[in-house]
Amino acid sequence: MSELIPALSADELAAIDAEIAHAPYRDAVAVDALKIVQRHRGWVSDESLKAIARHLTMSADELEGVATFYNLIYRHPVGEKVILLCNSVSCWIKGCETLRARCREGLGIDYGQTTADKRYTLLPVTCLGACDKAPVLMLGDVLLENVNPAGLMATLGASGEEGT
């Protein structure tokens, strides 16, 4: 029981402090700090949350309220890559539900779930501003446009599913 709240890494601290440098209050960078730590660790654990709160001199409960408000702050572990599937109206017209079904069949996951091998997490996302290329999704940091359901599993490199 040496350390209940593990320290933030030097890289994380440097990035957070760079944000604090141009903010009037430390807790003003709450969202930035959560994003920085998530970028390094993949998600925000209770321990990370407490460490960030302490660094920003705010209560962990208050920071939890902020963290859980935002859809892209993950308070659970996620897979190596998050699939953000746009399910807003233009992508829905163009068949995003078929893509979702493909993920269910091919990866065995629905919204909010992670594959057993921890490679993918599937989440719905708000209109990605690429409606002229619907349906679209983000695979990690990459936007995929005009996604073809038949080729989706090949793109994801999953086994047991052939593109037709």
Binding site: A28, D32, K35, G65, V66, I73
Partner: peptide, 22 residues
């Protein structure tokens, strides 16, 4: 860079968000 919530586009919500709040 935001953390994903449609309501952030509403200008007063955006201001709250930029202050590090919900």
């Amino acid at each position: 860079s935001s953390a994903g919530r449609y309501i952030c586009g509403e200008e007063t919500a955006l201001i709250s968000s930029l202050e590090g709040k919900r």
